[in-house]
Design a protein around this nucleic acid. Structure first.
Ligand SMILES: [Mn+2]
Ligand SMILES: [Mn+2]
Ligand SMILES: [Zn+2]
Ligand SMILES: [Zn+2]
Lengths: 154, 154
DNA sequence: TCTCGACTTGGACGAAGTCCAAACTAGGTC
DNA sequence: GACCTAGTTTGGACTTCGTCCAAGTCGAGA
């Protein structure tokens, strides 16, 4: 966390309270938050922070490679501070829970020359979709598709 | 295509001109269209068709398993009539081109019992991101990130 | 402390999608 | 063919997520 701030200062980032707070929220709880969730948590520490600044800061962190942008469904993007260990995502389509799955060696096949169509490939996203244990249990009785919002620690 | 309509009639679908036209657009050109692109093309055949109906129809086709909903980025969802052969997607992050990659046997590792966390997994989405040959070529000169909108036949 | 370019802010704007009450119609019945 | 009605369609209002911008603020080097 302090690491992060040091690294950012070196890449000539002006260290503002807003940026500090956003970084703090992200590394603090390692879940896959949406921009608005980050904003809500940041606003607890710094009430005047604006949505625009949160979007700006998240965008910068993404281009600096410090945070990963994850698109799970067509809804809000999620921001993932876990960039050191490559991993995939396991998503519950019923409640929105998101878990990290460590990638195992040679996991997403590196796309043989033939099927690459001349592309230069620089990332692979893998998303497993299914139903989590809780939702499976709750399934026999009454289906309660539950409030959205993924929360899964890696 | 006529196949599709027959199948749908059997699942007691009321065969309206709107639905016929949407189906026609989808199977007609096998690209990954957004809902609004489907609407535009459908409107050429049936000018009065509304956006709401296109959204409704696409949603129904998805739940009937006749069309696959693909989330490439945080933008508009795309609708993929290729549901018979499982496949992944190869996306150009520069121009938006989307290509189908046939899945090879046991390709997305079926997620070993241990890393399944009690989930019942029923789908895996794999997206390769990179740069297409055209964008690579155009790259040395002047970077022209080009109009969005994927078009790739399978 | 001063200065200035980088940063922040709120509000307007835009894209994608959902919702709903009123109007319409496919297809079964006579 | 005329009739009926439940299933469909429609346009517009509304929601969510995100971007943009002109004006004001502030971090940090001198
Ligand atoms: Mn993650
Ligand atoms: Mn496809
Ligand atoms: Zn669940
Ligand atoms: Zn391209």
């Amino acid at each position: 966390m302090d690491d992060l701030l040091t690294r950012l200062r070196q890449r000539d980032w002006r260290l503002t309270s807003q940026r500090r707070v956003v970084a703090e929220v992200l590394v603090g709880e390692h879940v896959h938050l949406t921009a608005d969730e980050v904003h809500a948590r940041a606003a607890e520490l710094l009430p005047e922070i604006s949505r625009a600044t949160v979007y700006n800061t998240l965008g910068e962190l993404v281009s600096l490679g410090e945070v990963r942008e994850v698109t799970i469904d067509g809804r809000a993007k999620r921001y993932d501070p876990n960039v050191t260990g490559l991993h995939h995502h396991l998503v519950c389509t019923s409640c929105g829970l998101i878990l990290d799955i460590p990638a195992i060696a040679g996991d997403p096949s590196p796309l043989a020359r033939g099927s690459r169509f001349g592309f230069v490939v620089d990332a692979v996203d893998v998303t497993y979709r299914g139903t989590c244990p809780d939702c499976l249990a709750m399934d026999g009785e009454r289906r309660v598709p539950q409030a959205r919002g993924g929360s899964g620690r890696s």
